Amino acid sequence: MRIYCEKDYDAMSRRAANLISAEVIRRPDCVLGLATGSTPEGTYKQLVAWNQRGDFSFKEVRSVNLDEYRGLAPDHDQSYRYFMQKHLFDHVDIRPENTWVPDGLAEDPAAECARYDELIRSLGYADLQLLGVGRNGHIGFNEPDEDFMKPTHVVDLAENTIDANARFFASRDEVPKQAFTMGIGCIMAARRVLLLASGTNKADAIYNAVCGPITPRCPGSILQLHNDVVLVGDEAALSKLIEAGVCVCG
Score class of each variant (00 low, 15 high):
R2H: 12
C5T: 08
C5S: 13
K7H: 10
D8A: 06
Y9Q: 02
A11F: 02
R14L: 07
A16L: 00
A16R: 00
A16P: 00
A17I: 07
N18Q: 15
R27S: 06
D29R: 01
C30F: 08
G33F: 01
A35W: 05
P40K: 00
P40M: 01
G42D: 09
G42W: 00
K45G: 11
L47E: 03
A49Q: 15
A49L: 02
W50F: 09
G54S: 03
D55Q: 10
D55F: 02
E60L: 15
R62T: 08
N65P: 00
R70M: 13
D75L: 14
Y80S: 01
Y80T: 01
Y82M: 01
F83E: 11
K86D: 11
H87M: 12
D93V: 02
P96C: 05
P96F: 06
V101E: 04
P102D: 09
D108M: 04
E112F: 13
C113K: 11
A114F: 01
D117F: 12
Y125E: 14
G132L: 03
G132N: 03
R135A: 01
N136Q: 08
N136W: 02
H138P: 06
H138G: 05
F148L: 06
K150I: 11
T152D: 06
V155W: 11
E159F: 09
T161S: 14
F168V: 06
R172D: 11
E174W: 07
T181F: 07
G183L: 07
I184D: 04
C186I: 08
C186G: 06
I187V: 14
A189G: 00
R191I: 02
R191E: 14
R191G: 11
L194C: 03
G199R: 03
T200S: 11
A203L: 08
A205P: 05
I206A: 03
G212L: 13
P213Q: 09
I214N: 00
P216H: 12
G220Q: 12
I222K: 06
Q224K: 02
Q224L: 06
L225Y: 12
H226N: 08
N227Y: 07
D228N: 11
V230D: 04
L231T: 11
S239R: 12
S239C: 12
L241H: 14
I242W: 05
I242M: 12
I242T: 05
